[in-house]
Each structure stands twice: as C-alpha cells, then as structure tokens.
Design a protein around this nucleic acid. Structure first.
Lengths: 256, 256
DNA sequence: AAAGTCCAATTGTCCGACAATATGATTATC
DNA sequence: GATAATCATATTGTCGGACAATTGGACTTT
C-alpha cells in the first residue's frame, strides 16, 4: 500500500505568484480601483524578482482588466469593463462552436425578461437615446450595415435600462453574437427592415407608457420574427456560428 | 482650416502585436484547438522580436485561455473553459459591487427556465449524478460547508442538463456568487437544510418524470425560499456582496 | 526488455543596456 | 513677469545574452 500522505504541492512560476499576489490585494479590497500601483521598479523591489518577471505578471492582470495603463503609462487598478468581458465571452463561445439554436433559445428567454424589467426602470435619458436610435433607424432603413449596428444598440440600451448588471452581463454576449447576423436577414428578406422598425417603434412606445405587457409581447414577437428571418436566409439552427458573421468581433478592441 | 486628413494611427507595443497576431490566427480558424504552437524560440524567429517580448505576448493569451501549457510545457491552442470564464466574470461582478438584489433577481429569472429546459433534455447520466448529489445532501445535512458545495453542484448539473452552452455561461456566474451564501442562511435559519433537501428531492423526481410544470414551480419556490432565507439571515438586498462571502472565489484556481 | 545514464532542447529567471517618451525643472526670450 | 524653449530625470518598451532546472529521447547497462 502506497503512502499517499502528501498532497501534490503547488509549484508555480514566479510570474504567476506576482500576478496572484497583486490580484489578491485587489480582490480583498486592500487596493481599490483607481489606486496607482507602483512602477515596475517598485514592484521589482517589493517582490524581489527581476523586472522581466514582474512584467510577465503584469501582462496577465492587464489582460483580465484588473490593471490599466493610465496617465503617463503608470499602472492603475481598474475595473474590468462589461464590454470587454462580453467581447471575450463572445469569442469564447465562437471557439466552442455554439450553435444558432443555443443563441436563439437564449435570446428567446432573456430578451422579453430584459424589456419587462426595463419598462419598470427605464430613465428619461435612456428613453431619449432610444428615440434617437429609432429615428436613425427610420432614416437609414436602406443601409444594412448601419441597421445592424442600430439594432444591436437598441437592444443594448434596453438591457442597460433593466438596471441589473448581473443580468446585463448574462445577456450581452448573446446580443453581441446574434444581432450582427441581421445583415444576412436583410439581404434574404426584403421586408425585414420595415418589420424591425415597426417592432422597435411599438416597443419604444410601450416603454414610454411603462406598459410591461405590451413590450413583453412585442419582444416575444420580435425575437420569433428574427428566428424566422434566420431560417429564411438559409441558416441552419443546429449549425455552428461561422466566421463570416464575425469580422466585427475581431475588430472590437479587446484591450480598452 | 486644419487638414484632419490623417486618422490617428494605432501605435501598439510589440508584445500586443504578437498577442493579436496569434489570436487572429486562432479566431479565424487557421490554428485549431489542440494544435501546437511553436516553441518560444520559433516565435522569436517568426516575429523577429526578442524572446522577452514574445513571452509577454504569450502571457496575455495564456490568461484569456486561448493558449495552454501542455505536455512538456509546450504551447498549445486551447478553448477557454466555462468554469474559468465564469470564475473571472464572478470576480468582476464583485469588483463592480453588484448587489444581492441584482443577483437574486437574475436567479429568479434564469433558474426556473434552466430547469424547464433541463427537464426536456436531461440524460440518464446526469440524472444519476443528481441522485448521488441528493443522497449525499441527505447524509451530510449537518455539515454547512459541504451542504453549500452540494447545493452549488446540484444547480450546476441542472444547468449542464439544459444543454445550452450560451445559457450555461449566462447563468453560471450568478450561481457561483449566490449559492455559497447559503452557509449564512443555514446558520440563521435552522430549518433551511431540511427545506432545501425537500425541494431538491422533488425537483429531482420531477426531472426523472420530465414534468416541466412541477420542476418549474418548485424551482420558483426554491429560489423564493432562498431569498427569504437571505433576508432572515440579515442580508440587505440593496447592499453589495461583501468579501466574507468570497473566500471560495479566491481559492478557485484561476488558471486551470 | 527493464533500468539507469547522458545529451539536447526548452522554459523560467536573471542581468544589464539603451532608445523613446513623458515629467518636471530650468533657462532663455519677449 | 509670463511664456516659450531647453534640459535632466524617470519610466517603459525592447533587446541581447546568460544560466539553472526540467524534460524527452537516445544510448548503455544489466
């Protein structure tokens, strides 16, 4: 019988220890967002490792958004932004080859709930932004690219209006992945832009009147319409999301 | 009148160019997961930069989960795992000081939908894991820590059974943050463990019978119970989630 | 064939160096 | 005296080289 009395001991490279040490300080609140971290030279001194090692550790935290290069390129603690996180999740989902079915199903659930929440909490400022968005949509009804952008924005504003950051972050990746696909729908379904505009208009009015039932019903319909459009433009719901849909994801700035 | 003909040109450090170049190859599918990347020396040669620079670039991708150190510490392309992503999102939510209200509200929406989906798709294997989980829960009803773990696992298995990875990733961060708080409920509400067990048992049976209505109804009740428990244990729903709830998050391995 | 030994490749870490850039202080100019 | 030009300093980004530790594979021994 073997011993098995020793547990496998954690042997981590120094650059990870550096990253972990800093992250721990941030997570436990000992360093707050916007606090400056020392210079690289300071960290070299504190940790007693080489600057190259410190720099490798810093890269890790910089990527995850907990450190930022601010004024004069100095290091500051920062909050990972939602947009950045959402972008990263979206990319990950693509790599995992999720299917349209999974995306659409998620939207069918989340979007109506989102707008229902939004109807109760939306601010006048957010309403105004929606009005502008809808006005632009009406004006640019023939420009497919612009229309996709505006559609994505429309739904994002609503998500923001729901005033729940956990929910916001749960929804955003799906939104980021799906709405750009509208471009293909607009090509295959000529009447799609007009229907989209109508739905957006009605939902906006419903939000203004804070009518939960109306907005929910229409969002249901809107998403179903969207799925029908996908099918008519030849998308296989069980097929994975393909690269052509995603140039925009690559162009999104990963680092800001 | 100024010229303004030139757009601000992107001036990025070399280590970011390295990271971007590799990421681009991965995202466009030119390198597939499990493909080996060359050694550091290879990359030095291909990019024509110093090894230190290459290493800084690698750290970035390693952190975001797109590169992995595999056998013999060689670099491989890899898929960012859900658990790792969820952990990262959870930490971010904490840093953003989200409130219990936001978390609970999200669960109230997502959990019933999750189990409804699961009821239609759960596999025999997943059911078996749930049975084991419930059996253990019954046995360890007095061990609060263990109970929290089992509770988290119960809900995670159900999320997995819903067979929708987009939805899974939307739900997981909330689950990761909330269920550990059950420990505090168990302290303040003596009858909580028994009620939890009862709910889990009934939901398990509902899943076995694939009875969507039952599982949905009970999950609704289960989450409401949870909220009541939180309130009785003195949690302010509008208060932000505090550090004491989170040791477990820090101990989760960020890198695996 | 199994076990032990040696060699080459690779990573983790360190050191030192320098150009580019930003900051702040100093000096020159009106 | 206020503004502009100049300079010194600090910090980051990048480079080159170096070496110990680890690993994998080839080779030798039993």
């Amino acid at each position: 019988m073997k011993h098995n009395k020793f547990k496998k001991l954690e042997i981590l490279p120094a650059y990870r220890l550096v990253a972990d040490a800093i992250e721990e300080q941030i997570m436990t609140g000992k360093i707050m967002p916007e606090d400056p971290i020392g210079t690289e030279a300071d960290l070299v001194e504190q940790f007693g490792v080489n600057r190259s090692t410190v720099r490798e550790g810093i890269r890790i935290l910089e990527q995850s958004g907990m450190l930022r290069r601010g004024d004069k390129r100095r290091l500051y603690v920062s909050l990972p932004g939602y947009d950045k996180l959402a972008t990263r999740i979206s990319r990950s989902l693509v790599l995992h080859k999720v299917t349209f079915r999974e995306l659409v199903e998620t939207l069918e659930i989340l979007e109506p709930k989102t707008i229902a929440m939004a109807a109760q909490r939306i601010t006048e400022d957010q309403l105004e932004r929606l009005r502008i968005n809808v006005a632009l949509t009406e004006k640019e009804l023939d420009d497919r690219d612009r229309l996709s952008e505006l559609d994505t924005e429309f739904h994002s504003i609503i998500a923001e209006a729901a005033d729940n950051r956990v929910f916001l972050l749960a929804r955003e990746p799906a939104g980021l992945l799906i709405y750009p696909a509208t471009q293909y729908i607009f090509e295959a379904v000529p009447e799609a832009p007009a229907r989209l505009l109508e739905a957006h208009k009605i939902m906006l009015q419903g939000l203004e009147e804070r009518n939960v039932d109306v907005v929910k019903t229409w969002m249901d319909k809107h998403v179903r319409d969207f799925v029908k459009g996908l099918l008519r433009s030849g998308v296989d719901l069980e097929g994975q999301i393909a690269q052509p849909h995603l140039e925009h994801l690559l162009s999104l700035d990963t680092y800001l």
